[in-house]
């Protein structure tokens, strides 16, 4: 139509462009809450850090706590378990990475790098087998502990040693060590 051609195209198009851009920005800001509501809600986030009282745990005892919906193994190791773990040559391990979120990503899987404290008594690990996600046995006194005295996953036969490192079986990685620290002598904060 002739009316269209005589008008300056840039002025007419600008308003359509501005309107379209504005509307698109509006649509995007509406879309965000729809997407974000599926993210972990406030109750989940509130439990993303927990504090655990470890004052009652004796040497050679383990407890399991729930953190972010998963079991966390907290074990106070005996001297024998510590020695067994320290003697192992890291290069012979199937997974040489410490998998410790409190250290740098390339730390090697020495027993020092697996333990939480300087005395190496305390082991804090996510109790989920790194193969396909079952919960390994070994926390209770009567449990099977596998060939290396630590934990044993009954689903597909992964064996973990007394530092929670994979030694035999289909799992490829050592048990994950979450961000954790001693708040004081009696309390560990995880997360």
């Amino acid at each position: 139509m002739s009316k269209k051609d005589t008008k300056e195209p840039s002025r007419r198009d600008f308003i359509f462009l501005a309107t379209g851009a504005f509307a698109a920005a509006g649509a995007a800001s509406v879309a965000w809450p729809i997407v974000d509501q599926m993210n972990p809600d406030a109750t989940a986030l509130a439990l993303s850090k927990i504090e655990v009282d470890i004052s009652q745990i004796e040497r050679g005892q383990s407890i399991t706590v729930k953190w972010r919906g998963k079991p966390v193994f907290i074990r106070r190791r005996t001297d024998e378990e510590i020695q067994m773990a320290s003697r192992v040559d890291v290069n012979s391990l199937p997974d040489g990475n410490a998998r410790n979120n409190n250290l740098t990503a390339d730390s090697s899987a020495t027993d020092e790098n697996r333990a939480l404290d300087d005395n190496k008594e305390w082991l804090v690990m996510v109790g989920v087998c790194t193969h396909l996600g079952c919960v390994p046995k070994g926390q209770s006194l009567g449990d099977a502990k596998g060939d290396y005295g630590g934990w044993y996953c009954p689903c597909h036969g992964s064996h973990y040693d007394t530092a929670g490192r994979i030694r035999k079986g289909p799992a490829a990685k050592n048990l994950d060590i979450p961000v954790a620290e001693f708040v004081n002598d009696n309390v560990i904060r995880i997360g």
């Binding site: 269209k4 308003i15 359509f16 501005a18 309107t19 509307a23 509006g26």
Partner: peptide, 20 residues
């Protein structure tokens, strides 16, 4: 604020288109 601005933009867009 957003809706008022958008309404304004749409108002002028509408006027422009319907002027044809």
């Amino acid at each position: 604020i957003f809706l008022f601005v958008l309404a304004g933009l749409l108002y002028y867009s509408k006027k422009k288109i319907w002027s044809r």
